[in-house]
Computed example of a mutant assay.
Amino acid sequence: MTALPPHLQLHDDRFASLVHPMSRLDRIASGLTWTEGPVWIGDHACLLFSDIPSQRILRWSNEDGVTVFRHRSQFTNGNTRDRQGRLISCRHGPRDVVRTEWNGSLTVLAQRHDHARLNSPNDVVVSSDGAIWFTDPTYGILSNFEGYRAPAEQSANHVFRIDPDSGAVKAVVSDFTQPNGLAFSPDETRLYIAESGSSHDASVPSIIRQFDVAGTDLRDAGVFATIDCGLPDGMRVDVDGNLWTSAGDGVHCFAPDGTLLGKILIPETVANLCFGGADGQSLFITASTAVYRVFVEVKGAEPWTRSAQV
């Protein structure tokens, strides 16, 4: 087998089929503050991502490079698309989850639970039934850097589900220190959730937990994987069920059985990632101050986030 370039690190032979030995690590945006929330917009062949402290959602395309999609984004963090292709975003400032309508207006989907304000919604995914699942750690209220310093009003740092019919906001997991990134398996029978509490408490393990999906509820299925450098944040799953997650030294790729297959080494701490590009085989990686792109040999498991009929 051809030797892999320095930014690709093989831990299991299966990783060789997921990357190409000539795959380059391209930095497509730089000079930013703290990038997060990447989502590929296949309809317009562009990537949207957040620069949280700068309160901007930025847009990147091959043709135009980096431009501003939204000013005064209220410390938007995670982004995804719903089944209709509309943008769903987590905002630290108003401590809510919002949907961008086709006319550009914003609809608040969640802002309170049990008559109290949410902490600071962080990351979000949409299941095929239209339900919206999001994490609610306290990062956006711990300081004024990526939100507004404030006391927490929730009884715990929950993971929530928004019902697609009633709009009811339901806590589905409540025993995380700081729940962060989340991603469904391709068949949506399992939900992976990152525990990033080691950011402020070294005694918290840097793990990804897995939950069996039982209708509108989740059942704890134990630890899926442990991150050996830094902590897990945003993550995505490919069509083969492999989980690609952010970490301190780059992106770690785990097989469905939890085996570490390999790493994409990035010179900055990685916050999040997503699949996209014209062929669906570009991995876009948001790191501390830059965004990177790597070609991979597999597509993401969320087809409606890549393209929609508009």
Rank of each mutant, 00 (worst) to 15 (best):
R27E: 11
A271N: 06
P232K: 11
R306T: 10
L231C: 00
A150S: 12
L142C: 05
S143E: 07
V270Y: 00
R81F: 11
A308K: 06
L231Q: 12
L106Y: 08
D175E: 14
T189N: 14
G104K: 05
I132Q: 05
S203K: 12
E63P: 09
F254C: 03
I28L: 06
D233R: 01
S73H: 12
L283F: 12
S128Q: 12
V98Q: 12
R72W: 01
R81D: 01
G234Q: 04
L243G: 06
P303V: 09
P5N: 03
T226S: 11
V204Q: 06
P303Y: 09
L265Q: 13
W102G: 00
T35C: 13
G250M: 01
V239Q: 08
G42E: 09
D238C: 02
G276W: 07
S196L: 07
I162Q: 08
E188M: 06
A110G: 12
I207A: 11
R70D: 03
G197Q: 05
V237R: 01
F160C: 05
F275Q: 03
V251E: 02
A225R: 00
M235Q: 11
G248D: 02
V298S: 06
T216C: 01
I285Y: 11
T216V: 04
L106S: 08
F284R: 14
I41L: 15
F145V: 15
I41R: 14
C253G: 02
D129S: 13
R112D: 15
E153L: 08
G276E: 03
N242I: 04
S17E: 15
R149W: 01
S120G: 11
P179Q: 01
R209C: 06
R219Y: 04
